[in-house]
């Protein structure tokens, strides 16, 4: 059986199953649903749709959106899921959840740094803290969420996951900084 080959492809497929749509619409929906923690780039949707199409997990229809007489007339390609796409998606939904590595980038730097690198590590941690704060600031607020009860419940759950993660990251950054600074204050190197 054909399967999506990346998480993004799977999410794009899930969105097409939820409601057929064109690339831009799908990108906006996914962006709103996943929140800033996902760091999603909507342009990746088009390549994912091409790959899903190659494996017959989605199909498309040309749909004219504006009259031919209009200078802005253009055809939009609306994607629909195939039966095989629905089966592949449901297979993924029920499959075992993989444990993702956590903050690998920052942990890797800490793992290989020496005491003389402490200022650079503090700088990297500060940059990471800014990034986390940015994600908090950019998390979709209550009032702009989907109004349908299921969508709202899902969106709140996703947002809660992102915020819990960010809360833990921010607390960890602070404690890591304290450790590095305390080390610089007197422990032998």
């Amino acid at each position: 059986m054909s399967r999506p080959r990346s998480l993004l492809e799977t999410i794009v497929l899930g969105s097409v199953i939820e409601r057929p749509g064109y690339g831009y619409d799908l990108g906006k929906r996914i962006e709103a649903r996943m929140g800033p923690g996902w760091q999603f780039n909507p342009s990746g949707v088009y390549a994912s749709l091409d790959r899903l199409k190659e494996r017959d997990l989605v199909r498309y229809e040309q749909r004219e959106t504006l009259p031919r007489s209009s200078p802005r007339s253009r055809d939009r390609v609306v994607y629909h899921a195939t039966d095989e796409g629905v089966v592949a998606f449901e297979d993924w939904l029920g499959s075992e959840v993989r444990k993702e590595p956590v903050r690998m980038d920052v942990l890797a730097r800490i793992a290989v740094a020496r005491p003389e690198h402490a200022p650079l590590l503090l700088e990297a941690l500060e940059g990471y803290e800014r990034e986390c704060l940015d994600m908090v600031a950019g998390t979709t607020a209550h009032e702009s969420l989907d109004v349908r009860p299921w969508d709202r419940m899902i969106a709140e759950g996703v947002r809660d996951s992102v915020l819990q993660h960010l809360r833990a990251e921010l607390a960890w950054i602070r404690s890591m900084r304290r450790r590095i600074e305390a080390f610089g204050d007197g422990e032998p190197r």
Partner: peptide, 8 residues
């Protein structure tokens, strides 16, 4: 942290 959501 959730009280900071949406703060510019």
């Amino acid at each position: 942290v959730s009280m900071m959501v949406g703060a510019p």
